[in-house]
Design a binder for these strands. Structure first.
Ligand code: SF4
Ligand code: SF4
Lengths: 153, 153
DNA sequence: TAAAACAAGACTATATTAGTCCAGTATTTA
DNA sequence: TAAATACTGGACTAATATAGTCTTGTTTTA
């Protein structure tokens, strides 16, 4: 029951963009080093966020990323969903999947309820909350990447 | 953000034992086939539950497992915690671990709040709730194991 | 039109999951 | 008291997921 590292990184990226004045365009490189997210991983994450309409991407020379929605319209649930897919809790709650005979399982409906509860918690937490504490440009704590070096086979 | 299969199996095992009259002693074999949990995996899971004091184990010929606490004193949180360890949500919430400089991270306290919220949800859901719906001995839906056959290398 | 940036996706090492298997220990009962 | 039965503990494993990197291509600006 943990979010993964990619999601934590994604939160950092969005947080950084939320902190820029007027949704300024910022290069992946800057986000990456400011928030201590491995460079090329950051690109991948920003692409996901971009496709999901949370950030906007701009190609070309003066390109980069900018925030696409007001911070108060971006929730923790949005980020988790974009990165990890719909919050499922248990397999029987994944859309396509069903566990043999889910309708007859006495536990199934309770998992469903729990999921809803968790989703509400995550949806309530929007990014404007973080900005109260953190002025734009403040440094972010590094989180040691597992693999920093390139694969020098 | 999913519980793992072992936890789902653990819930099934506990549920089955809760359904037995007077905390009757039941063999792992019976639990396994009644609840469709792979046999040897069930043993392992029951051992964990036993060490955690949720079920009691009895060795020897008429041995097996029985429920060790009243169903209403066993919660979903208990099971998840026993099987997967303390609910952490993010690395910075694991006891020993800290992410470089967690105290300065603006997101950290919010993860903490979310964790507390999720824990409450899981703690509220106790096993007596399931028994309202399900009379002892009702069959359980199978959940197709990933690996059914023994490793015949 | 060259340089700067993102886009898409193939590729990889390591960790975790989802189990199996076996040698040993405790308990009952013939 | 010695089988037989059932749990205990731990080593072992294949498949999958995680946490990244790298390369090639496309868009935009100066
Ligand atoms: S909760 Fe019930 S329906 Fe869902 S996966 Fe577990 S056994 Fe299947
Ligand atoms: S939330 Fe903050 S402290 Fe926690 S892991 Fe992420 S960056 Fe580190």
């Amino acid at each position: 029951m943990q979010i993964n590292r990619e999601t934590d990184y994604a939160v950092r990226c969005v947080l950084y963009l939320c902190g820029r004045k007027d949704g300024a365009i910022t290069m992946a490189d800057e986000i990456s080093s400011a928030m201590n997210v491995p460079r090329s991983f950051a690109s991948k994450i920003l692409q996901k966020l971009s496709r999901a309409g949370i950030v906007a991407s701009h190609q070309g020379v003066k390109g980069g990323f900018s925030i696409a929605r007001a911070p108060r319209n971006i929730s923790m649930l949005d980020i988790v969903t974009v990165i990890e897919g719909p919050l499922a809790l248990n397999v029987c709650l994944e859309s396509g999947e069903s566990c043999g005979l889910s309708p007859s399982c006495p536990v199934h409906p309770y998992w469903h309820t729990l999921r809803t509860g968790v989703e509400e918690l995550f949806a309530e937490l929007t990014f404007d909350r973080f900005l109260e504490d953190r002025l734009p440009g403040k440094p972010m704590p590094p989180r040691t990447p597992l693999r920093t070096k390139k694969t020098t086979k």
